[in-house]
Nucleic acid binder design. Structure first.
Lengths: 346, 346
DNA sequence: TTGAAAGCGCTAACAA
DNA sequence: TTGTTAGCGCTTTCAA
């Protein structure tokens, strides 16, 4: 390892103390212009670059936030991640990525007291395997922002869209098109499936509001929100004696998987079966047909998450947990209204 | 910030020196069993967790590798990233993500002398904005592994598939189906477009081998390999007086964009136009119709990249640059052979 | 405004 | 096998 230029060497060359160099480099305090110039010259001459590690050790922080997601190759997360990285970088923070595969032990570890210290100053976390209680057990000294649907117990922030309202809106869209046998793919009737349950609730509420009966047997549970599960559920639905004429999918990936099966069976979307998704990932806009969906404001979710976690990091005293809502909108495409009729709605 | 338990405190409680605790914690050297047990007990009792930052500073390394990609929401990269993160973690390394948007200055900065020191020990880099020469100018003391098509100048490793052979294979597949007016979407006839140019070369070689003339006007250049560019190029091709009967797309995203336009124009895939992509992203397998593609061995690329960068980090002396080839295979799906006939080929 | 010096918590060379 | 101790490079308190 090549010996690096240190602060001390710069100080020596400039004929000042290392304290002064530190001040100059960080733009701190009051340094007279001539001193500043002298130091800067020495910095240039030696090609000095601050050692981030040393700085962080001295400051007791790592300058990094961790972003923890279950799966990186889920388009929704990678799209979100882009915004998070951008926002964090703007504040001088680096982003460490972790992928848990939904493993509860791994997830627990990351937010527990037992995690390795100073690797990251805060966490933006999209939990999959942890339920309410496990989340509440997190190290209270760790600034934590949760994405998706987990109600805060007051020790961390939570940001997400209004899942019930959004799902209601998607379902009402299908009902308003005259569909009456609606299926829902993605329910998760167990403690870690909160997000899914909220969507199911919205699904039911829409039926109530329109005075239509929910067909319970058409509400299909799936362990994940991916294409494979969507395809499997769709196959099951089509094998039913009385299959649905519309499907509300709890993610766009599920919708794409479902549409894949519909195409394979020779059924037309939306003529035979209308399909609506959730997340507004780019794939959905380019699928055949393009898929209607609920579009959460990802840019806002990303920037707000970063903003909040940095706020918590900066705060000396633990901040009370906050519930933050990002806006969403219904995006109508061909998978529900057919060619030519597709447009956008609020 | 809560005062943390330090090595020294553990040493005190255990009645040994900090040196010994360090040895125990890191599993170094020879420590007698009773001593070890005593130390471990103290560790447990105090809830001691090593401070990664301090360790790294003392060791002069950061324990992190940076993975630099142009765009995170490109499925190919997020799929690759999964493997990289997994492999790195297995070796005790964390992964720092950076996204350059293809900005040459940003890219240059990351591998130059001027980068911030010790933030990462090595880089796995997929350059977009930098040409051969700019890459050659990287800080030679920085362990560097390049993904994609950039020939190493001997100071870094490069790993990728054989683009020419793969493209030839894809093109031959189209020709062997009897198609004769083949288009290619994704050429990039400028210094940073090496990968694209190699694919164009394979495209031409296939024509030669089969004794078919290349239709130059059907080779379309695009700045990026995404859906939008694929859609735009396809529109252009369809507006030609004599449109193609098959399209070789330089990425699956391009293929999906192209197929989107074909569907919108009421053309059938593959009956009217056969389409083949490149990368084998998951979307391609679930599109309608599923898209034939060149499938690089992503898992192997990921693990090899990590392996090589760690090797370079570990080596005291700079290792000579190596060219590494990952295997690929042709995956035949409905977008070229139609329903029912799709299968896999080596 | 600037200097001297004590840490930040850990590793590792040197000694015992 | 274990202890002593001098760094790693920077920040920051205290004093001047």
């Amino acid at each position: 390892m090549r010996r690096d230029v240190t602060l001390r060497e710069v100080a020596q060359l400039a004929g000042v103390s290392s304290r002064t160099v530190s001040n100059v480099v960080n733009g701190y305090a009051n340094v007279t212009e001539p001193t500043r110039a002298r130091v800067m010259r020495a910095v240039e001459q030696l090609g000095y670059r601050p050692n981030v590690l040393a700085r962080n050790l001295a400051q007791g922080r790592s300058g990094q936030i961790a972003v923890v997601v279950p799966y990186l190759d889920t388009p929704y997360f990678s799209e979100l991640l882009q915004g998070i990285i951008r926002a964090a970088r703007m504040q001088g923070y680096n982003v460490l990525i972790d992928q848990t595969d939904g493993d509860p032990d791994h997830e627990r570890m990351l937010i527990s007291h037992g995690r390795s210290r100073l690797l990251f100053d805060g966490v933006i976390f999209s939990p999959l395997g942890l339920d309410q209680q496990a989340l509440a057990d997190h190290d209270p000294s760790l600034p934590l922002v949760i994405l998706g649907e987990r109600v805060s117990q007051g020790t961390f922030d939570h940001i997400g869209i209004d899942d019930v309202a959004a799902s209601r809106q998607a379902t009402e869209h299908l009902l308003d098109l005259g569909r009456r046998r609606l299926a829902a793919i993605g329910d998760q009737p167990y403690p870690t499936g909160e997000a899914a349950q909220l969507r199911t609730r919205g699904f039911c509420e829409a039926h109530e509001r329109r005075g239509v009966t929910v067909h319970e047997e058409l509400v299909i549970a799936t362990p994940r929100f991916n294409r494979v599960d969507g395809a499997g559920a769709m196959r099951h639905l089509l094998d039913l004696p009385d299959p649905p004429d519309a499907v509300f999918c709890y993610s766009d990936l599920v919708a794409l998987g479902a549409m894949h099966v519909l195409a394979a069976r020779g059924l037309r979307v939306p003529e035979d079966v209308a399909v609506i998704g959730y997340d507004d990932i780019e794939d959905g806009a380019y699928s055949n047909p393009p898929v209607s969906t609920i579009s959460p404001d990802k840019e806002m979710i990303a920037t707000t998450a970063v903003e909040r976690v940095l706020l918590r990091i900066a705060s000396r005293t633990p901040l009370p947990g906050r519930e933050l809502r990002a806006p969403h909108r219904l995006v109508v495409r061909e998978s529900t209204v057919g060619r030519g009729a597709a447009s956008r709605a609020g």
